[in-house]
Nucleic acid binder design. Sequence first.
DNA 1: TCGAGTTTTAGCCTGAAAGACAAAAACTAG
DNA 2: CTAGTTTTTGTCTTTCAGGCTAAAACTCGA
Lengths: 245, 245
Amino acid sequence: MDINGTGERFADGFGPAAHTGAPRVGHEVLAVVFQVREGRLCVLVWRRGRPPCEGLWALPGGSLGMLEGLGESIRRQLAQKVDVRDLSHLEQLETRGDPDRDPFARTLATAYLGLVPAGIDPVVPPDTEWCFASELLPMAFDHTAMVDSARRRLRAKLSYTNIGFALAPPEFTMSQLSRYYRAALGHDVAATNLRRVLLRRGQIEETGRSVPSGRSGGRPAALFRFRARTLEITDAFAVLRPPAD
Amino acid sequence: MDINGTGERFADGFGPAAHTGAPRVGHEVLAVVFQVREGRLCVLVWRRGRPPCEGLWALPGGSLGMLEGLGESIRRQLAQKVDVRDLSHLEQLETRGDPDRDPFARTLATAYLGLVPAGIDPVVPPDTEWCFASELLPMAFDHTAMVDSARRRLRAKLSYTNIGFALAPPEFTMSQLSRYYRAALGHDVAATNLRRVLLRRGQIEETGRSVPSGRSGGRPAALFRFRARTLEITDAFAVLRPPAD
DNA sequence: TCGAGTTTTAGCCTGAAAGACAAAAACTAG
DNA sequence: CTAGTTTTTGTCTTTCAGGCTAAAACTCGA
């Protein structure tokens, strides 16, 4: 990597701390955890009790342990906020490292997107709450930007993956599912179209059972479930496909 | 963030190095730089001259400087490999941090996807080469996985963004463009369909000029250009759109 | 200069998929 | 039994991708 032997390799002003020459900066792992509650998209946040950014909302997470991987670390740390078994999906989002993102120390942060299915209510510590994503007050550091990234990622993936499985409980009616989609997408989703789209894509299937609908009567609703509970990409979604033959 | 006052916060075995308590690990920034050359997708790699992984291909990049951001850092480091002005696109890909990804030191690496338009030939140092992406030999550390991520990302974005602008030179004929797409996608792309798709999406436009086609005759080909040279998402691509009204 | 060969361009057709809408089905409550 | 409610089914329209063919526009050689 010493491209011309002139030592430009250390133009950053730091010699090697190991064979790679990487300087040692702090690294933390954070998560934007979404859940649909009361028909609205919510984010799990906690209120900082000390400076910097005292009193502001912050994302759950913390320091990367010396012996753990990134995903491993955020799972461990979320286990202290939300029961890990409740996390239906987790994926890496982005890493932020602006020198001034934290005014007190040079710290990088890798953000994850986590999802919790609707209908359960994990125990959270007293300083932690589920906030409506649309009404988030300014957050600590660059956490607002991370939440925005996470919302965009979720919205996009609802279009071209089966990620709905992570928002919905194991079984659901189509009108329930359309409410989860509406909460995450921010606009109405017609249950009848949603049904056809997801059925054609093979993402959901009928369980055979049904439940009575609202207390004021109405045809009983069929119960559906997602076929898979891991992320799958809808391949029919690709444009510029390989030629037919 | 000390969720219950029992000190579980430091369950990773490390006390705070700063107010965040982040342990200090090495961090490097790498780039998967693609260019279409000779009609094929190529990756910029260099051959390691010393252990670990001596003799294996590796991605360009290096240590994050103490005062620079992540994107800033990879741009600086690529300037030593490829003239920065030639980079038509750069985006963050993923951060890898398995404790054993580097056997000699705990190092995190943030990978970027970079693109260089076809038709130019940046000066690269002697240990550095453009390798066909489809014929890459095993690479150092987890770099192979990063190249795979980058290829998937590029292929996906060719479907639903205007990222072709970063593969093509400023002006091009449709058959040239279809060759760039074929190289990146790995399959034939009919120039006539590509033209209609990109025109309808408003991604490309005619320059008004044209150039003679192959030496054996043929109708002159119209020259096109991309309307934008920054990433834009094709919104018509979203399924589950907001209702019409 | 004319015809053969080559490449690009334009037009037409098909099929897949999404979304709007309306009617039928299946229930509750009074 | 009827009115009201909700789900489900079916039809229609629109949009877009992609295949195919014919026309256009050029070069080259006879």
